[in-house]
Nucleic acid binder design. Structure first.
Lengths: 107, 107
DNA sequence: CCAAAATATACTCTAGGGGAAATATATCCT
DNA sequence: AGGATATATTTCCCCTAGAGTATATTTTGG
C-alpha cells in the first residue's frame, strides 16, 4: 500500500486534488478535466480513497468525490521540523555555523 | 528530471533529509546510517543535489552534504491552498455546509 | 609518484506503477 | 424487465526507478 507522499507524487492525482479543492465533483467531470480515460481516473480515485484523501457521497448512479484533510495535514506535520530551516531567521544562524572553520557561538 | 515531490517520495531520501536536518554529514556517515551501499547512497545524493535539496562542501576527499531549504519551502507553498481545509475552523464550516440541505451561517 | 581513502559513474536486473481497452457492476427510468 | 448511464474492476503492456556489483575518478599522505 502506497505512502501518503507516494500518492501525492502522481501528477494526475495532484490535479484531482486541485479540482476537488474548488468543489466536489463526479467521476465524469474529473475525466473531462483530466483528459484521462474513465478507468484510469477511477483507478486514481481508488488510490485516493484508500489513502484517505477523498471520500465519496453516492447520489443515484453518480458519485461525488470530495476532499478530506487528514493526509494533507500529515504532510504538513511531516514538514514541520524542517521549517526551522527558513523561519525565525534560524537559517542565517546555520549558515554562519557552516561557514566558520570551528565553534563560534553567537550570544 | 524528477519533480520535487518525486524526490521526496523515496524513503531513503527522506531518511537522508532527516539525518541532514541534525547536522551536515559525509557520504560514508550516511552509508552507515542508511544501511545502503555506497553507490546507492551516492545515487540518491545526486538526485537530492540536482533537485536542490542539498549542497556539498568539499574538504579533502570528504564531501559534506548539507540541507538547503528551497525545495521544502516549495512543498510548503504547494500545501498552502489546502490549509483552509483544516485551519481557522473553516473545516467545521465546510462540513456544516455539506451536511445542511441549504445555507445556514453561524454567527 | 604511488597506494589508499572517499566518492562518483556505468551497467544490469527486476518489480511496481501508470496507461488503455475490455468487461463487470450498479442504479435509474420508462 | 430492459436499456441506458455512471462508475468500478480486470487484464495486459511498457517503462522507469531503485538495488547491487564493478569500475572510474579524485585527493591525500608519505
Amino acid at each position: 500500500m502506497p505512502t501518503t507522499i507516494d500518492v501525492l507524487a502522481e501528477p494526475s492525482r495532484r490535479r484531482i486534488l486541485d479540482l476537488l479543492l474548488e468543489r466536489p465533483r463526479s467521476v465524469n467531470e474529473l475525466v473531462d478535466q483530466l483528459g484521462l480515460t474513465q478507468p484510469g481516473t477511477s483507478k486514481h480515485l481508488k488510490v485516493l480513497r484508500d489513502s484517505g484523501f477523498v471520500r465519496v457521497r453516492q447520489e443515484a448512479q453518480r458519485r461525488w468525490y470530495e476532499l478530506r484533510p487528514e493526509p494533507l495535514q500529515e504532510i504538513d506535520a511531516w514538514l514541520s521540523p524542517y521549517r526551522r530551516l527558513w523561519s525565525d531567521r534560524l537559517d542565517a544562524l546555520e549558515q554562519h555555523l557552516d561557514a566558520m572553520p570551528d565553534g563560534d557561538e553567537p550570544a
